[in-house]
Amino acid sequence: MQVDLEGIAKDTRGYVGADLATLCTEAALQAGISVVEVPNVTWDDIGGLDNVKRELQETVQYLVEHPEKFEKFGMSPFEGVLFYGPPGCGKTLLATAIANECQVNFISVKGPELLTMRFGESEANVCEIFDKASSICALCSLF
């Protein structure tokens, strides 16, 4: 992806951080990436599940907020978090809350939306989700 940073800098002279954030969001929407958001769900919106919330804070939030502490003690960061359980048990709610607490983008993907009966199409749908996610990461890293 080629980006003219000098051109962008000239075109955005006088912009503040909020203006640049809006520009990134608008660029993502123009690129057809409308499934990305920083959610507004907080820990207070989740009743109970205190052990799960604490575990997510320790494994995800602390790593995002204090990566130097993990490096100092020689701890390797986690590779990911897998939520599992029956429908309606709070998996998506927990994921959106931790994304909000870390102020990161969140893409909600529902399994049935990815699956098709045609050979290779499900894999293509998964690849499309990852392409959208990496497009957002590349776009936001410019600013």
Rank of each mutant, 00 (worst) to 15 (best):
F73V: 00
P86R: 04
L94K: 11
L115A: 11
K10T: 08
L93K: 12
G74E: 12
L142G: 04
C140S: 09
T25R: 11
V16R: 15
P86A: 02
L56T: 13
C140P: 01
I107P: 05
T96S: 04
F70G: 04
C127E: 14
V41A: 00
T12N: 01
K69E: 12
E58L: 02
V60T: 00
G88E: 14
C102M: 15
F106P: 03
T116G: 11
I98G: 13
F106I: 08
S76Y: 07
A97N: 01
Q30D: 06
K132G: 14
G90A: 13
Q61S: 06
N40P: 08
V36S: 07
T25H: 10
A28C: 11
I8E: 05
P39A: 11
S76R: 05
E121P: 00
T96L: 02
I98M: 08
E68R: 11
L142E: 11
V64W: 15
E26W: 05
A9T: 09
K91W: 09
V109H: 08
L114Q: 11
Q2G: 07
H66S: 10
V35S: 15
C89H: 13
V81T: 09
K69P: 04
Q2V: 06
E26T: 06
W43V: 09
R118Y: 13
V104N: 10
A18E: 15
P77M: 10
P77N: 03
D4R: 13
L56G: 09
G88M: 10
Y62S: 08
Q57G: 00
S122D: 04
S135M: 03
G32T: 02
G80H: 02
M1I: 05
S134V: 07
A133D: 07
A31N: 08
A21W: 00
T25Q: 11
R54C: 09
G32P: 02
K132N: 15
L114W: 14
E37Q: 10
L56H: 01
L114S: 12
V52H: 07
G90Y: 11
E58Q: 12
M117T: 06
K53E: 05
E37P: 06
I98Y: 01
P87N: 13
E65C: 02
T116W: 00
L23M: 15
Q61M: 01
E6N: 04
N125F: 02
E101D: 14
T25M: 04
F119C: 03
E65M: 05
S135R: 00
C137D: 03
E68F: 05
